[in-house]
Design a protein around this nucleic acid. Structure first.
Lengths: 214, 214
DNA sequence: AGCAAAACTGCAGTCACTGCATATTGGCCT
DNA sequence: AGGCCAATATGCAGTGACTGCAGTTTTGCT
């Protein structure tokens, strides 16, 4: 276990391109964490393994976690956002599951590294937390998108403020669904992302009526 | 800004009783963070203000955050859990909002300290994240409780495994609602917890039909 | 008073992370 | 080829969170 500790600045955001160096650091980091665990793996060890100086490490990754978890922040895909907003389907939640498709977990990256990464993350409660945090960053964006869609659907009875609040609430709910999906992915079983997403969508449909509504 | 950094062990769990010393440390910590910000407040400063040694600080709190955020882990209330499981109301989500009532944010603590704490937390993205994390710890517990309830409602068509998965999904959704409620509380406005909870419940009811289901 | 347990303290060490000043490299223009 | 600029890599010295350990004070009991 462990965690915490911070250090004043971090303002100077590192580059963290997909450069060869960065890649080498990433795979060293993931491999070592799988071997020794998160706490037992020091930045120095990673640097030695990757053949770079510690300073270089921190030029590429802001934190030790970043080297393991990855640096690409989750983002919503533009075109999907448009489709989502335009849709008039009453099945908002299900639509949204499609919308998010686990940003940051899709096939952008080297598949093998990604698999190892996922194993490394699940091996440490600490890393799980960090991973978890990252989903938070998408919630505001999500809330905004949902607001657009809700505005076209809502009965005029509701004030714009109320719609905004409902959008934020919905975004949080959606984030929950996202996390569930990520959990499913991480807790082994299949690695076929589309399959899991489909499964989740079906499950959401099954669960919704049980939640209440009216 | 800042964050990260950890340090291997933390295994020796600190005492963190509600002792006078711990209280003094807590309020020094919260006050100083409000004054100088999270990063600019060092543990040494807190210790000086509280009149204890650094070692004592870490005997009471595992991390700097803990002194600010508080140490009581969110728990579900036994009797409420029983009522929740027993209920046959179709309004699961709304029931659940009542169930959780923001564990860890209720009146157990010194109200004034709690208010300051909340302000301190919102003042730092870093602390928000940590606070956020803490909700994660309740999700497993929640999933279990929901499973009990779903089992009595579900049509026999669903396998026990499927019900378990649906429970986990629901727990995540609920956690989302929890976070929304916490957000509302934190983002100023009122500090009247019951009022906000009521508001949220109403909003959940309004939102559910829009989500889809069918 | 007399004594053990609990709480506190000092200290030296580890490790994440920072700023800054200095090399090293690779592409590009002539 | 030679010279130049920007990007990248490095060394180094510091700060600050956190740990283990060993020793001292305080507290509560009898």
């Amino acid at each position: 276990m462990s965690t915490t500790g911070e250090h004043r600045d971090r303002s100077s955001a590192p580059t963290s391109r997909g450069t060869a160096t960065a890649r080498r650091i990433e795979s060293s980091a993931v491999a070592l964490v799988l071997q020794h665990g998160f706490d037992a793996t020091t930045v120095d060890m990673i640097c030695a393994d990757a053949g770079v100086s510690q300073r270089t490490f921190f030029n590429h990754f802001a934190t030790k976690d970043a080297a393991i978890i990855g640096t690409d922040i989750p983002r919503l895909d533009e075109s999907r956002v448009r489709a989502f907003i335009a849709s008039t389907s009453p099945d908002l939640l299900s639509d949204a599951v499609t919308l998010i498709t686990l940003p940051g977990l899709d096939g952008t990256h080297d598949a093998e590294l990604m698999r190892l990464r996922m194993r490394a993350i699940t091996s440490s409660a600490d890393l799980m937390k960090r991973q978890f945090e990252r989903f938070a960053s998408i919630e505001a964006e999500l809330a905004e998108v949902i607001e657009y869609r809700l505005l076209r659907v809502s009965d005029a009875a509701e004030s714009r403020d109320e719609v905004r609040e409902q959008s934020r609430l919905t975004a949080h709910i959606l984030a929950g669904v996202m996390r569930y999906t990520a959990d499913s992915l991480m807790s082994g079983r299949s690695t076929a992302i589309p399959a899991i997403v489909d499964e989740t969508r079906a499950r959401v449909r099954a669960v919704l009526p049980k939640l209440g509504g009216q």
